[in-house]
């Protein structure tokens, strides 16, 4: 009854009295008008600059346009999927090195994690795109984007996994050890599965980072969504329309990934609470 689960929106304000209700109603109308005016101004801007002309937008009525966009999206998804898998594998190794009992491994892992987290993806991309070829490392464009994106994501992945492992109560380890389990199997059979479950939502939302980083694929001329958008633009001269549509596609996909992460998090929390 004390509303412990209410969000801040519901409790920050006192229940409005008649005067406050009138004021809220008034400001609500004003702000609706302001938002409508803003929207109208944007639409007007499109209109006066001729950007509402059907010739710019009619290409989106064609199947071929969407097939081409879809092909680009497929390229994007392939990079994102490969990067996620690689980042997870590398993050897993880094996490284990970070928490194991060998000091030297701890230090090396910490160093790599800090580099991965502290250097922009673009710089890694330039490393594989501009510099690696100077040492005879000629990679196909797929790997020129996938490798740097994975390297950039592996540090945060390792830290996310580690926070999960750290969140597992000590009693779990002690119980397993007292049963005579060896430390490796304590980690892999008892601690990690539980910790992993805590961080699944975080790992899902980190896919958003990977997905966003794939947009740099145009730098290495890999045919992703952004690159195909460029081709569409040069064919149809509809730059504004195409880029806006592409931006919306990215936003919607990332929004859905975040939604999924939030849903999984709610379930995980409910399951953890139920287990207690």
């Amino acid at each position: 009854m004390n509303g412990a689960h209410a969000s801040i929106r519901d409790v920050l304000y006192d229940a409005p009295g008649p005067k406050a209700k009138r004021r809220i109603a008034f400001v609500t109308v004003i702000s609706l008008l302001a938002l409508a005016a803003l929207l109208a101004a944007i639409v007007r801007r499109f209109y006066v600059t001729g950007q509402l002309d059907p010739k710019y937008w009619s290409i989106f009525l064609r199947y071929t346009t969407w097939r081409f966009i879809g092909r680009g999206l497929l390229g994007t998804l392939q990079v994102a999927a490969a990067s996620s898998v690689l980042a997870f594998a590398a993050g897993m190794l880094l996490m284990m090195a970070r928490v194991c009992r060998y000091r030297v491994l701890n230090a090396i892992a910490t160093f790599i994690i800090e580099l991965s987290r502290g250097i922009p993806t673009l710089l890694f991309i330039y490393f594989f795109f501009l510099l690696a070829p100077q040492f005879g490392l000629q990679l196909p464009s797929f790997w020129r984007i996938t490798l740097p994106v994975s390297i950039s994501a592996m540090g945060v992945t390792a830290e996310a996994l580690r926070s999960g492992v750290n969140a597992v109560p000590r009693g779990q380890t002690e119980a397993a050890v007292s049963l005579g389990m060896r430390s490796a199997s304590v980690f892999f059979k008892i601690v990690f599965p539980q910790g992993f479950r805590y961080v699944i939502p975080t790992l899902i939302s980190e896919m958003v980072i990977v997905f966003k980083d794939t947009t740099y694929a145009y730098v290495v001329n890999y045919a992703d969504l952004m690159q195909n958008a460029k081709v569409l633009i040069s064919n149809y001269d509809a730059l504004l329309a195409v880029y806006l549509v592409v931006a919306v596609i990215y936003i919607v996909i990332n929004y859905l990934i975040n939604k999924l992460a939030a849903t999984v998090e709610r379930r995980t929390r409910a399951a953890v609470a139920a287990a207690k």
Binding site: T49, V208, T214, L240, V246, A247
Partner: peptide
Amino acid sequence: NIPGAALLIVLVYALPYL
């Protein structure tokens, strides 16, 4: 949710059309 590169491209290349 918008990738930085996508936002930058919209600002640099698309806004001049408006």
